Simulated scan of single mutants.
Amino acid sequence: MLFFPPLSLTFGTEGAMSLLSIAVAVLQLYYVAVRVVVQQLFSRALPTPEFPVQKGAVAFVTGGGSGIGYHTAKHLAKLGMHVIIAAHNEDECRQAVRTIKEETQNEKAGVMLVPKRETVDGFEEHFGLNYLGHFLLTNLLLDTLKKTGTNRYSARIVTMASAVHYAGELHLDDLQSSCYYSPHGAYAQSKLALVLFTYHLHHHLTEEGSHVTANAVDPGVVNTELYKNTSWPVRLVKWMTSWLFMRTPEEGAATTIYAAGAPELEGIGGCYLYNGAKTQSSDLSYDEELQRRLWTASCKMTGVPDVTGICAGK
């Protein structure tokens, strides 16, 4: 990301070029995002998958207190899985568990476009909550996942991405968006980071011979609380049209459920899934050097050891 000194925004040709660079970058971001979103708005939602009972399996669902995460947790609980829900709102999380238990009779039962602010650890909120938190949690659970995966039943890591990643750019020299902050750019970057992370993680797990797979899923354009930080005109349009064009959280959970339980995905990873099918993600997401550099930076930011051995020169 470019750094723009105060005077460059006001005086001279350099300032004009800086403003032009910002305008072009913003317009390009919106063009790509709108094109993909419009395409998804008119695509048919995947019906909620139906699988055989999977008693004995354990599912750890982040963001399971509401929206897509809640419906994912509820459906997996219906399959007989031991579901663990993680959410930043404890009251909401407890209510979700109670409701799921009541509806399924199973006793085992993110942020978007926010103003610039930081997590308690000092990370830019989009990057910290949408990406770094998942990176850290996955690494902390990785040894357990490796121990539980078997030849017959691989452990599965499912990452919630978004079509917005197609418009994302990764600024390794400014992952915190401190030089220039755009809510849309920060959100797109966090979702691109999740896809890059997923691909690199699966490549490492495959090389290691682990019975663990990692896939990224795209839920489509879903009517959730993530839109609460958008401008009032956007919220008005959403309120007027969501019933016609947007998917419900239950419909949005379909691909996540598919990735978590589909028998045909046994042992298959490194995929970007949309509407229950493998789909091409952005060209940038396949950049292996960018994947490695992001992984290394993420290890340093979270303080976890680099299990892939990149820093050790492997």
Results as ranks from 00 to 15, higher is better:
74 K>N: 04
105 Q>S: 15
66 S>V: 10
52 P>K: 14
72 T>A: 07
67 G>I: 03
99 T>R: 15
43 S>C: 12
74 K>Y: 02
96 A>C: 03
56 G>A: 07
55 K>D: 09
66 S>W: 01
98 R>P: 00
52 P>E: 15
97 V>R: 13
87 A>Q: 01
44 R>P: 00
68 I>K: 05
105 Q>I: 03
84 I>A: 11
41 L>H: 11
96 A>R: 08
84 I>K: 14
83 V>A: 04
80 G>C: 07
80 G>K: 08
63 G>W: 03
57 A>H: 15
107 E>N: 13
55 K>V: 12
106 N>A: 03
46 L>Y: 01
60 F>D: 00
65 G>I: 05
102 E>Q: 14
95 Q>L: 14
105 Q>N: 15
56 G>D: 03
75 H>T: 14
77 A>H: 10
97 V>I: 15
100 I>F: 07
92 E>C: 15
65 G>W: 06
90 E>Y: 12
95 Q>N: 13
57 A>I: 06
77 A>Y: 09
96 A>G: 02
51 F>A: 07
104 T>I: 09
99 T>A: 08
66 S>Q: 13
43 S>I: 02
85 I>P: 02
100 I>V: 10
63 G>Y: 04
56 G>I: 10
59 A>Q: 08
106 N>M: 04
84 I>C: 13
88 H>D: 03
98 R>S: 14
107 E>Q: 12
68 I>Y: 02
40 Q>W: 04
78 K>G: 11
53 V>I: 12
85 I>Y: 05
64 G>M: 06
